[in-house]
Nucleic acid binder design. Structure first.
Lengths: 132, 132
DNA sequence: TCCTAGTTTATAATGGTTCTAAATAGGTGT
DNA sequence: ACACCTATTTAGAACCATTATAAACTAGGA
């Protein structure tokens, strides 16, 4: 199983459930955005497996902490995650409530001039809201 | 009362409660960030008035829709609002869970090259996460 | 195989936000 | 000033995403 090492390396035991989650998240050519609810449905439909919500939350939170997933900063009732963990930005279509990736080449370099004493920049994320 | 016109212009009746909320939000030299909970406490303590949570939510949501307030896109259990409705960006201090304004001069111009058919850019917001 | 700590699960609890329905207040026409 | 209609306020219930709980189960080493 190709994800066992990945899980072990980040201190997670490779359980059946976590391997299923890995398949859904990482066995795709394209990266994608999802909510916990999306993911739960996908596991049920595509994998014909039932994994409890609690396990999905635990695992996704662990992955996020380890850097295997990114949270997308957006005000919504649900939390959005991204399997694309490289530096990139997003459009948010307000009408359709849909997220669209902005490739790095779609956004010019962002120059943060202000510094805060003793703090390091961890990430710079741009959210472009679309209307109409 | 200096806020009556402001409220009327945006289709809101100037009630006692809304005027209190306006005072707390807009009677300051500096703009600030807040959560609904923050605001509720401030009204209770500074104004010696009790306004129900439902009213605060209704009013803040109306103000946000009218453009008197901005939501700050950030993944948190609570929604953050900003009384500074000019275009500007934010630091988010992950350790202290604190928001810090970035003046417009603190961030170089942001060039969004990608276009989506039939959609207009409503806002461009940058969130810089700080660690350490 | 046994043991122990980590994991999964159903379910309950939590907490921010929205809904509801009754009481109240604003504002227009008389 | 009054009456009337509608918007607003309010306490409390409802909602719903997320987290906590505790019992059953499992991975993996001895």
């Amino acid at each position: 199983m190709k994800y066992i090492e990945k899980l072990r390396n980040s201190g997670l035991r490779p359980t059946k459930q976590r391997l299923k989650i890995c398949e859904v998240l990482f066995d795709t050519k394209k990266t994608f955005h999802f909510t916990i609810n999306d993911l739960s449905k996908k596991i049920k439909n595509k994998m014909n497996t039932k994994v409890s919500l609690a396990t999905i939350y635990n695992t996704i939170n662990a992955f996020e902490k380890k850097g295997y997933l990114k949270q997308i900063p957006i005000n919504s009732n649900q939390t959005y995650f991204d399997t694309n963990v490289t530096d990139h930005h997003h459009f948010y279509d307000l009408k359709d409530e849909k997220l669209i990736d902005l490739e790095n080449t779609d956004v010019g370099p962002i120059n943060i001039k202000k510094k805060i004493n003793g703090k390091k920049i961890k990430s710079v994320e741009v959210l472009v809201k679309l209307e109409g």
